[in-house]
Write a protein that binds this DNA or RNA. Structure first.
Lengths: 156, 156
DNA sequence: ATTAACTGCAAAATATAATTCGGCACAAAT
DNA sequence: ATTTGTGCCGAATTATATTTTGCAGTTAAT
């Protein structure tokens, strides 16, 4: 599978990142090709795994999930077994929508969403703090989000 | 506009969050309705703003953006004007894909992607550190991402 | 209770879009 | 020069979305 991306491919990726629901006909116009080769390129990008998936983005306030937070987690020991225990527990919690292993004094960064502060507190107390290998938690509540672009720049 | 979501709406949102490219026919099967009312519901969800947009998710490694980081930013003053100066500068940097105003001793959390560590360093030195109102920066490199679900739970 | 208005649904008809196919042009290799 | 491969286009075909019509259940007003 050839992964080299030309200018047109990058344009396609740009457009599909910001609007996945565009029709192939419209996409082909915007990149300056006819529908057939446009579709061919999109399929190639999908099959090669460059495009991993397509997702609907929801309004968190409107679905009643008004509270979003980042949580910095430190584990009791940084060994492999503890990490596995932690990840397994985290995977079961739907409100944890992101989990990243990071460098720095802490170990993990989580992104968590909740209905409100009360249910956030409950979630943290009952589910997250409760994970045996968790040593320390530091929460930051997101007051507002100014950028959440979903469009990554693509290097040449 | 009525924003009340019933069980079927929530199921639709669940499915579209994890797979936005499903056909209406298939979606209608999975929720147990015929295509017509299914489409009607999806359109309602779109028009009411509950579904904000649709996005392709790319493989960061395959597009050559292997480095992702969280950056914790403290401004020199927490006043409105400084925040505006900061946000304006941040908005121009494509590699900054997220920017959240958060509680805590610092002010903002950024998510930044870059080709590699070298270009990340260059980006930080030349563009981010350079913003006049930035006081302190603390970077955490993402070693690996275990969860990035794109599917938020929806309360009843 | 009876009617009217509304809502959500299904089935079929229609419109739109995706996909496939055949062939042409250019480029690289022999 | 000839072959081979790649990428493109236009047209035909197939699949899908969308609209329309009408029916049934629910609610509200008379």
């Amino acid at each position: 599978m050839n992964l080299k991306l030309d200018k047109i491919d990058r344009k396609i990726l740009d457009i599909l990142q910001s609007n996945a629901k565009i029709t192939n006909a419209q996409l082909s116009k915007e990149i300056g090709l006819s529908p057939a080769p446009t579709l061919e390129r999109v399929k190639k990008l999908e099959n090669s795994g460059i495009i991993k998936s397509y997702h609907a983005k929801l309004d968190t306030d409107k679905i009643g999930m008004g509270v979003s937070t980042f949580v910095y987690v430190t584990l009791k020991g940084h060994n492999k077994q503890n990490i596995e225990i932690f990840l397994e527990a985290i995977n079961k919690i739907n409100e944890v929508i992101e989990c990243h292993h990071v460098t720095g004094s802490g170990d993990f960064v989580l992104k968590i969403i909740a209905k409100d502060i009360a249910s956030y507190q409950q979630l943290m107390l009952e589910k997250v703090s409760d994970i045996s290998v968790v040593d320390n938690l530091q929460s930051m509540v997101i007051l507002s989000t100014f950028k959440d672009s979903k469009v990554m720049p693509i290097p040449e």
